[in-house]
Design a protein around this nucleic acid. Structure first.
Lengths: 339, 339
DNA sequence: AGTATAACCCAAAACGTTTTGGATTTCAAG
DNA sequence: CTTGAAATCCAAAACGTTTTGGGTTATACT
């Protein structure tokens, strides 16, 4: 059984008040008493009961993060890196991280409501914002603290960190156009994710700037997995007027695309160029290595967490919106089109 | 401000005792009162304050999981899938998941001690067991509930779930030998991870069964990342008597190996065959696709969590050791050696 | 001597629950 | 009418902290 503050009090012959205050270094406790208490606490292996402490203090020192898990084979490296970021930042600021998993839709909001109403967490980190994002609408309406990775249209006041996907996509387009590409295709995620809208906007505007337009049958939507990228790419390859460049909206789908092209007997970077987005570590190792746009996912996780912690402590000073500039990473999945 | 049980009591003109008991469906509350209370609770949007509830009940309904994060670019798909497994299982049993991140070594034990002593979690899930695993030694000595993914030598009594890596490796060896391979090399993880010892044992015994022995310079240790696999493979390729098969102890390193072979101007599956271990989703999509051993990571996460929950509820009946049989997945990174 | 100040200490309340150990009422049986 | 049991209810204690609102003593100053 863990010793309590009461046990220490008994041992050192002081009141529990004094013990508590000694441990918290209040200055109405004599140095000798403080030393005495600290000594005893250490000897007895005392560690404060967090539940009790937090109940009294009326906050939780924990931040919530709900993983939007899609299928059972949920293995997007994006998330483990992001999680590492918030986890480490949280640990540094003595916050705990309460993680829940929940597929988007249906019971998702129940999970959020349960967490805020039962006062289990002080704030949330929201990832992959959506267009009509119920999670954010709800938290915002409740005045519950959160920071989002991703903007959400129509809600400019919320705290977010995001990368400038429009710009990232323009970098990709410029790169491909410079290589000589004119026939573009694209594999987009479902457009209710805001990052998808930004990437598509950047893509279309980038192309428009060069007087290029994608034909409607050339833009398909995939589910962000390799499998999705693979299947959509086969469709694109089968098109009468075959595209020379497939712009995938994330690396995983791009990797699927590479594979589809190879399975069709074509060569990536010659017959068809492929680009990704995210620069997950593996994209350097696939063959050919993937031209993509890098975003510092770990760092974004860290920053998101730190923004939230700042907010919880200072009650909301500090910068609330951050937009990161991405960088193009040219590798070998893109080349001069042969046709 | 969330309403409390006291507010409900006032509203329905009963004591807080009765309200509490009504909400918990005790049978010393009249049906009418129950209905009344429930109605009021719903109207007022009452949700129990979890901190208070748990303080009183002297447990936490949360399980702890500490992610052993190596570098900042921590993006092992293994972990996101495993996490999804425990997360979903925990949610189903109304447990929360407290996740912390901590690089192995140094302060790792502090993190564990803090969690158990501050009574923040009811039990732990431990992943990637090590040979002298301080975490397990500590938890076991404290009688603190946990289940491990991975056995640990000398501690047969602990609750664990593991897959039969020895067998998995023997499947790989048999497959390669049947193809005609005799010159094997291997990229092992640090041998203080128990899964590494099992896999190496399986590998060596499998080879021995065919009268094959690996030369010492042919077994190198990598850090489980693509990068590590790539670098170690370059060394192996540079060897005077070049191996015809590189057995990597996980998929990520295998993917690095594939890349290294290709960068050296050789072809995978002809000049050198490569095998992985884990069957992460991407291994189906690299080129050539990876021959590997599949283990149901998501399911293992689920089971580990369920074992722990069972233990916490029943106080320890039920099966405590599970060993899963892996399956060989033959793809295109292995073939008949040409030499 | 009286009083103000500083230094140190503590009892009790509070946080929001659950549980303990009855108390009261009702009603049927004796 | 008394008794016992069943059906309802509740005051208070408890969980382990932190905070409030003081109290006591010693010292220094007028």
């Amino acid at each position: 059984m863990q010793p309590t503050i009461r046990d220490i009090a008994k041992k050192v012959n002081r009141s529990i008040t004094t013990v508590s205050r000694a441990l918290h270094d209040y200055d109405d406790v004599s140095p000798e008493t403080k030393e005495l208490v600290r000594q005893a606490a250490k000897e007895m292996g005392y560690v404060a009961n967090k539940q009790a402490q937090l109940l009294r203090q009326q906050h939780t020192d924990t931040i919530g993060f709900i993983l939007p898990t899609f299928g059972p084979r949920f293995s997007d490296p994006f998330f483990s890196e992001f999680l590492a970021g918030i986890g480490n930042a949280a640990a540094e600021h003595a916050y705990d991280l309460l993680v829940s998993t929940c597929p988007p839709g249906e019971h998702e909001m129940d999970t959020y409501e349960r967490f805020v109403q039962s006062q289990r967490v002080d704030g949330f980190i929201i990832v992959r914002t959506r267009v009509d994002d119920q999670r954010i609408l709800y938290l915002d309406s409740q005045g519950f603290p959160f920071v989002a990775f991703g903007r959400v249209p129509g809600l400019e006041h919320i705290s977010y960190i995001d990368e400038n996907s429009e710009h990232g996509m323009r970098l990709i387009v410029d790169h491909l156009v410079k290589l000589g590409h004119r026939r573009f295709a694209c594999i987009a995620p479902s457009l209710n994710m805001t990052f998808a809208t930004h990437r598509m906007k950047g893509l279309k505007e980038g192309l428009a700037a060069h007087g290029i337009q994608m034909r409607p049958e050339c833009v398909l939507t995939g589910d962000l997995t390799e499998k999705g990228g693979y299947e959509r790419s086969l469709e694109l390859i089968g098109l009468a007027e075959r595209p020379t460049a497939i712009v995938a909206c994330n690396d995983l789908m791009a990797i699927g695309a590479i594979r589809a092209i190879q399975d069709s007997g074509l060569t990536v970077g010659r017959d068809i160029s492929v680009t990704g987005f995210d620069d997950i570590p593996i994209s350097e190792y696939v063959q050919p290595s993937l031209t993509t746009v890098s975003q510092p996912i770990y760092q974004i996780g860290r920053s998101a967490c730190e923004m939230l912690v700042d907010f919880l402590n200072d009650n909301g000073s500090g910068r609330k919106q951050i937009l990161l500039e991405p960088a193009l990473v040219v590798r070998h999945s893109t080349g001069i089109p042969i046709s």
